[in-house]
């Protein structure tokens, strides 16, 4: 799947904004948003927040978890843990990317947040590569992938399932020849 489609999915997540206009509730197919009161925070989907921000109709309030200190804590935890830790959002990478891109002026500490998220991503990806390697070497048939986020799963999609498919082909192929071989030799 194309990474922009993962981003598309992440745009459904909610984020708080402070509108600079007032408007009644808007009934969308995916749910109602608003009412908007100038100066009062309201939760909207990210796609809407980004659009309103681009029209300079709102300020974006950072997601609670997008805070440099707590992200750095999460990073240390990720480093120490053998398993994947639970991320604050299934789309942490995309949300950070979207919000920091469009609203870096609303978000204080944007640079530190960016670095922390990138570090977390790097740690997790290298962990993921190591565990995939171990999984393939152990010839596993099933793996639990709890706490892996959408983008992380997508990043190994072309490789991991394909590698497993090929291994299966080699194994079944091998077995078929073997039984064929033992069949003819008898």
């Amino acid at each position: 799947m194309d990474p922009c489609e993962i981003e598309f999915l992440s745009e459904k997540e909610l984020v708080s904004i402070i509108p600079n206009f007032s408007f009644d509730m808007i009934h969308l197919i995916s749910g109602s948003v608003g009412p908007f009161r100038a100066g009062l925070p309201v939760k909207v989907p990210i796609w809407l927040a980004v659009n309103l921000k681009q029209q300079q109709k709102c300020r974006i309030i950072n997601q609670d978890w997008m805070d440099a200190d707590s992200l750095n804590e999460a990073k240390e935890e990720e480093k120490l843990s053998k398993l994947f830790t639970k991320m604050p959002s299934n789309h942490y990478m995309e949300e950070a990317q979207l919000l920091l891109n469009v609203a870096s002026d609303d978000i204080s500490d944007a640079d530190r947040i960016k670095t922390a998220i990138k570090d977390i991503w790097d740690i997790r990806m290298s962990k993921l590569r190591t565990s995939i390697d171990a999984f393939l070497k152990s010839e596993g048939l099933h793996a639990k992938l709890d706490h892996l986020t959408a983008m992380e799963i997508n990043s190994v999609r072309p490789l991991l399932p394909h590698a497993l498919d090929q291994m299966l082909r080699i194994q079944t192929g091998g077995r078929a020849t073997q039984s064929h071989y033992s069949g003819t030799s008898q």
Binding site: L141, H142, A143, K144, L145, D146, H147, L148, I153, L160, P161, L164, L168
Partner: peptide
């Protein structure tokens, strides 16, 4: 066994 909300890779 699959728990609700758990993620897996399988055939």
């Amino acid at each position: 066994d699959l728990e609700p909300g758990s993620q897996h890779i399988i055939q």
